[in-house]
């Protein structure tokens, strides 16, 4: 199952390496799910992912997974405590329904990154496509580039940060998630409004920027968006918006 050692730059890292060109995805994920309590080998390398689906889904121990290359659908989905890094780009649904831990994508992320996430931190160094943070329920997402249309749709809690701009209908039908966008927002969705950046928000955002590996950017450069709370309860005057 463990197929070799990986040489990265000048260091020799003695960590188990799974080559997806010769090892099945099932074998990789099974190994990541069977970490005994008190184990010392908590670092794993994955090479040749070549756009594979479901790489490192369902991790439920504080392990470190380094994926060298681009992945397809649902990478690191349901992550609960793992630290997963994609040294490449990620397909649709990366870190979907994350519970805790962190997921880092060095390249771009496709649609619905961090969807329905309940906790943990997702960092995308490139751009994220449409529906980033859709129905987010507590996850923190930091995108160094732009986020696509319908991002944070029906977001319930957590923080979505974009250093670039946002596409159409940002925060449509949002509940209580906080959205921080530094660049231009193409349009706001139903019931999403610009809000005042108070001291507490500067504090939250500064911490998120630090955790997201952002340097040389101040929290004051962002605009906060959130819910106008007009769609919470049925009101006949809002009938057209439902």
């Amino acid at each position: 199952m463990i197929v070799g050692l990986l040489f990265i730059s000048s260091e020799i890292l003695l960590m188990p390496t799974f080559d997806l060109a010769s090892t099945s995805l099932r074998d990789l994920n099974r190994a990541l799910h069977q970490i005994p309590d008190g184990a010392n080998d908590l670092n794993f390398n994955v090479i040749n992912p070549r756009g594979s689906h479901s790489v490192a889904v369902g991790v439920d121990k504080p392990i470190v997974v380094e994926i060298h290359g681009s992945v397809g659908y649902y990478c690191a989905g349901m992550n609960n405590g793992g630290i997963v890094t994609v040294h490449g780009s990620a397909g649709p649904g990366v870190a979907e329904n994350m519970m805790s831990g962190s997921v880092f994508v060095e390249g771009d992320a496709s649609q619905y990154a961090g969807a329905t996430g309940r906790g943990g931190l997702l960092v995308v160094k490139g751009n994220a496509a449409s529906r980033c943070g859709i129905s987010m329920k507590g996850i923190d997402i930091v995108v160094h580039g732009d986020i696509g249309h319908m991002s944070a749709f029906m977001g319930q809690s957590g923080n979505l940060v974009a250093l670039g701009g946002a596409g159409d209908a940002l925060g449509d039908s949002i509940y209580e998630a906080r959205l921080f966008v530094r660049g231009k927002v193409k349009s706001l969705g139903s019931d999403c409004v610009e809000k005042e950046m108070r001291r507490e928000h500067i504090k939250i955002l500064s911490k998120l920027l630090e955790r997201g590996g952002v340097k040389g950017v101040k929290a004051e450069e962002f605009t906060r968006y959130g819910s106008a709370r007009k769609l919470y309860n049925f009101h006949i005057d809002n009938a057209e918006a439902y």
Binding site: G51, S89, G107, D108
Partner: peptide, 22 residues
């Protein structure tokens, strides 16, 4: 439809890869 389809193309590692806008 997916990145998987492109991985065997020559020099894909250095290609510009992006998603077309809606």
């Amino acid at each position: 439809s997916e990145y998987r389809a492109l991985v065997a193309l020559p020099d894909i590692e250095t290609a510009r890869v992006w998603e077309p806008e809606p």
